[in-house]
Amino acid sequence: MNEHQWLQELLKVNNEEVKLSDKQAKILEAAIEMFAEKGYAATSTSEIAKRAGVAEGTIFRHYKTKKDLLLAIVTPTITKVVAPFLAKEFVKEVFEHQYKSYEDFIRALMKNRFEFVKKHLPLIRIFWQETAFHAEIKEQIQAVFMQNVYEKFKRIIEYFQAKGEIVELPANAIIRMTITTIVGFLLTRFLVLPDGQWDDELEMERTIRFLMDGLAKRD
């Protein structure tokens, strides 16, 4: 794969390839790096232009505003990376298995998400940092989750509730608790304290234990 081929692949939206000039590809790559490192608000178009090796005016010939540049990164990332992953690999690897316990399901879910975040960390940083400030990004992520994951997640919870393994709380509440606990670990591990002395396997097991202590049904 050549220098910009991964970006060309990313920008194939609805099976229509977006052709990038060499300068446009350099601008997008530089923006991904800068947004991931400093955040959207703290990054100027002049800094992006300097890293990309182009004049600042070149950016505005391709993107009317800095926000257009952000969305040019985020939209295809969701449609070509996040959505297919959720719809195919994520669902296949995590949700299309028969688990002996909800704990086994949580363990598979957590390890899967850990590897996903580690693999796509620069782009994940952008999502984490910008979702709270840009409604378009939040809406896209919510739509992907609801269309591909929610019903499968709900069925797993209801199955283990019927078996008497986890508490009789609304499925929405259990989904929220499960996701926020796992995301909290990943956020701390990769964004807040990435240089900490982490024993990843041990911390994942502790997180799973914490979740199950709260969700396990007691007589």
Rank of each mutant, 00 (worst) to 15 (best):
L193R: 11
E29Y: 12
H120L: 07
L70S: 13
G53H: 02
R176Q: 10
E115A: 09
S46M: 04
N172K: 13
Q142I: 15
Q98A: 11
K92E: 14
V192N: 00
Q161T: 08
K100E: 11
N148A: 06
I179W: 04
Q5T: 09
P84H: 03
E139W: 08
K92D: 10
D68N: 13
L109W: 15
P122L: 03
M177H: 00
Y40S: 04
A36F: 13
W6M: 06
H4Y: 11
A143F: 12
F210C: 09
L109H: 09
L191W: 02
Q98S: 12
A31K: 05
E9D: 14
Q142L: 14
T75H: 05
H4R: 07
I32C: 00
M34S: 15
E89M: 13
A162R: 10
K12I: 12
I59G: 03
V13H: 01
S44E: 14
L187Y: 14
T79L: 08
E205T: 07
E96V: 03
A55N: 12
T131M: 05
E33L: 09
T45H: 00
K92T: 13
E9M: 07
K111L: 15
M34W: 04
Q161W: 11
G196T: 00
T58E: 05
A72N: 06
W198D: 02
R107I: 10
L28H: 15
I106S: 15
D199F: 00
F185E: 03
R189E: 05
E203W: 14
A87V: 04
F116N: 11
T188L: 01
A216S: 13
I59A: 01
T207D: 00
F85M: 13
G164L: 09
T178K: 09
S101I: 12
K92W: 13
